[in-house]
Amino acid sequence: MSGWEQTADTAGAVLLLLGAAVSLLGAIGMLRLPDVLSRGHAATNPQSLGMLLVLAGVALRLRSGIDLGTLGLIGFFQLLTGPVAAHLVARVAYRTGHVGREGLLFDELDEQLSGRPPADGEPR
């Protein structure tokens, strides 16, 4: 095994570990944050970053043309579909009133949906 292959393998392993750690962070965030909408933040942002890191790690280990294309396809579809799923969860959570125990500080969507004047700091 030549030198740069060794380097690529090591870098790939590091990226895999890093990606797994970032994804774990997202999972911990889902446990720690108090309500559905806040958990949505933890579920989307660190997860897609972790997924990209894992894909980059796998790419460094595989190193063949068509596999890179497949990995790129996985990343593309994940980045495209993840936000859609997160948006649907957030939308349902908002519309069923799961906005946390303390409510929202201000809510500019409620103003537009109900036509009510803004209620400052009032829990929904």
Partner: peptide, 28 residues
């Protein structure tokens, strides 16, 4: 996008270990 994903990962991680209560909001 890559840079923002990195910074947002950091930010969300900081928020989840922050014991201080925060208030969320919906912004148009």
């Amino acid at each position: 996008l890559l840079w923002d994903m990195y910074t947002s990962g950091l930010k969300v991680s900081r928020q989840m270990f922050d014991s201080r209560p925060y208030r969320a909001a919906v912004l148009a």
